[in-house]
């Protein structure tokens, strides 16, 4: 464990250093022009400090992003449209609803494909084609179409999330459910096990590692899906709406803090799934 901490810290520190250098470099011109207009000729140290504290920087410095994120998480009351907690909850609920729907659809699809081999040839091309369509192009169409049917709020966003989610789960589960080797299948045949018994005692346990791998990809995609689905309608709430508002008004700090929260939300969800996977693995006798 200790041996793995050093490389992690080194890489993190490297990224922070590069980020600061990038912030100075990218903001330099803007700051310099502003100072020149004001008739100032700041020295190097002043310039650096100004590039790292600009209110609307091209690239905000890490500490600016953290401060802004912290302030908008803890400052305004949760019900306020300025609260990132509020936006995060809106996006998270759509993402989780979509994750649930999409994962369920993915598993059911995989079960169907495993049992009816003809479905693999007939369905797979459509499944793959569905993911080749950019979700950014598809989301407005779906949102508008569902809106016309009177469906607004969480559901349309969840459907976009589900659309991204089902794919990794379906692909993983098709592989996982087909993973048992000939020996294990022969063994169950000597017991005259029914197909349902083979499914529950052999296929399902074998597929769980594949399921978790799929779920981890899916849950991160779910957050992306929910955010993308918030863009086209100019939604009032959600991290996507916050991003959109930030870019309308050139509030880069607002954009970056929303991005930070989105990343933290995704990472936490993936982390939670990792934890669940470890618990399941322990129950299933994995080596400690």
């Amino acid at each position: 464990m200790r041996a793995s901490i050093l490389p992690v810290l080194t890489v993190s520190a490297g990224i922070v250093v590069l980020w600061y250098l990038g912030a100075v470099w990218l903001n330099w011109q803007v700051v310099w022009d502003m100072q020149a207009r004001a008739g100032n000729a700041p020295d190097f140290a002043t310039m650096v400090s100004l590039t790292l504290s600009h209110a609307r920087p091209l690239l905000p410095a890490p500490h600016q992003v953290l401060t802004e994120t912290w302030n908008s998480l803890t400052g305004p009351p949760i019900t306020s449209p300025r609260s990132l907690v509020n936006h995060a909850i809106v996006t998270l609920s759509a993402a989780l609803a979509g994750f649930g729907l999409g994962s369920l659809a993915g598993v059911l699809l995989a079960v169907a494909i495993i049992h009816v081999r003809a479905l693999e040839r007939s369905l797979m091309p459509w499944i793959i084609a569905s993911q080749a369509v950019p979700v950014l192009a598809l989301a407005p169409i779906v949102i508008v179409a569902l809106g016309a049917l009177g469906m607004t709020g969480l559901m349309p966003k969840a459907i976009i999330s589900a659309y991204l989610c089902f794919f990794p789960v379906a692909i993983g589960m098709v592989k996982g459910l087909a993973a048992p080797d000939a020996l294990a299948r022969d063994l169950l045949r000597t017991y005259s096990a029914t197909p349902a018994q083979v499914f529950w005692t052999l296929r399902v346990p074998t597929s769980l590692p594949y399921l978790f791998a799929g779920l981890k990809v899916a849950v991160a995609a779910a957050v992306v899906g929910a955010i993308v689905a918030e863009l086209p309608t100019g939604a009032q709430a959600g991290l996507g709406a916050r991003l959109l508002a930030g870019s309308y008004f050139g509030q880069t700090l607002q954009i970056w803090s929303a991005l930070t929260v989105a990343a933290v939300v995704s990472a936490s969800l993936v982390g939670l799934l990792g934890l669940a996977e470890r618990l399941v693995a322990r129950r299933m006798g994995a080596r400690a």
């Binding site: 020996l183 294990a184 022969d186 063994l187 000597t190 017991y191 005259s192 005692t201 052999l202 346990p205 299933m284 006798g285």
Partner: peptide, 17 residues
């Protein structure tokens, strides 16, 4: 279920005790 079959490999399910 008239016979028991022992394979070349133990083929124990690793997730079962």
């Amino acid at each position: 279920r008239d016979y028991g079959y022992v394979f070349q490999a133990p083929a124990l399910f690793p997730w079962r005790t």
